[in-house]
Amino acid sequence: MISNKTNIQSYIKIENNEIVLNGTSVFKTEPTDFADFAKQAYRNFEMQYPKFFKMDALSKLAFLGSELLLSPIVSAEKENNIALVLANKSSSLDTDVKYQESISDKENYFPSPAVFVYTLPNICLGEISIRHQLKSENSFFIFDAFNGEFLSNYSNILLNTNKADLVLCGWTEFFNDNYKAFLCIISAAENENYKNENINTLYHK
């Protein structure tokens, strides 16, 4: 396999009630819970996608990040071969717990189908794919901690084997209202902006 150089094209971080796009703060709220923060961000960027409100917190987090990175580059005219590679530590545990609570009382047993459908972490990849009509590779991994080397290597393999033209990869962690998202777009296109950076350095910046 010929390994071509790949470059980070853009990145986004979402944590502590703030969204930072390519190193610039583009949205910030007063301290609030994630549900409120996510709703304010959705309104601020005029996303016009009512299904957003039906998503669980993990999907909302991944959706917000991906929306700001993908919307400027996704084409409505042609197929977009953009792979999605995300990871986190808590999987879908936040929603799993909510679902478990809804079925724990035998006398009040009303499992919610709308909650149940989000009891897998890779559902957020489906939400992003539906939004942007992507029919490309996608994978969700679980790690004890952010693993930039893995994400970088996996993305490079997808690009170097022509499985994807671009890769959206990163970390989307959510549990008990603690959250952090770091997403970036990687491709073979030249980009001098982050030539001295890698996924790890940008994540920890």
Partner: peptide
Amino acid sequence: IDALELIV
């Protein structure tokens, strides 16, 4: 999924 929620 909404239809299932209506049944609930």
